[in-house]
Design a protein around this nucleic acid. Structure first.
Lengths: 89, 89
DNA sequence: TACCTAATTAGCAAAAATACTAATTAAAGT
DNA sequence: ACTTTAATTAGTATTTTTGCTAATTAGGTA
């Protein structure tokens, strides 16, 4: 779960997740939403991927990223547990 | 909200929150739960305080820290919003 | 094969986070 | 005033994160 919280610690990565909320996106389109170089975006996507928060699937020359809802729910309940919400002890 | 997620990115700081879940604690007692030097712990508490997640109140020579539930709830719903949970748009 | 677009990897420099020791402040008791 | 306990601030070194440019890989097409 440490990788997950580390991944959430950067504003660009959180905004990527927010973009993917509305459906899968091509890497290039994601990069187009931010004022950063493409390799920088690849790096952020890699962090999110290694945290399990997103999943990338290749379609021809491009790669489509989608939000991994399972991991998102896990992160949410981990945070809730931290504050004692949801289940006691 | 950036400070909040940054604050949550360190395992020791998350464990501090988890400790405070069960009630307020003195700084020294918190430090005693971890294998770190006291100034290091002061630093972690400062990060949590500046994110609004905890609040410290002095009682004589010691300082009692407590979880700020309001900020905790805010963090929780910010994360939920990121994933599209809770309210749409 | 050559070429083009999409995306990644490699390598590096700058910035931020982490954690330590030593010194200092704060409050209270003697 | 002096001492003691509790905690913080100052200063520094190490590690991690971030973000760039240049080079490379992957896949599709002429």
């Amino acid at each position: 779960m440490n990788k997950t919280f580390k991944a959430l610690a950067h504003p660009v990565r959180r905004e990527i997740l927010s973009l993917l909320r509305d459906g899968p996106m091509i890497s290039g389109d994601i990069a187009g939403h931010f004022d950063v170089a493409w390799p920088t975006m690849t790096g952020h996507l890699k962090v999110l991927k290694e945290a399990g928060l997103v999943h990338g699937e290749r379609f021809g020359t491009q790669i489509r990223y989608r939000l991994n809802m399972g991991a998102a729910e896990d992160a949410l309940s981990a945070l809730a547990a931290l504050f004692g919400k949801g289940d006691q002890q």
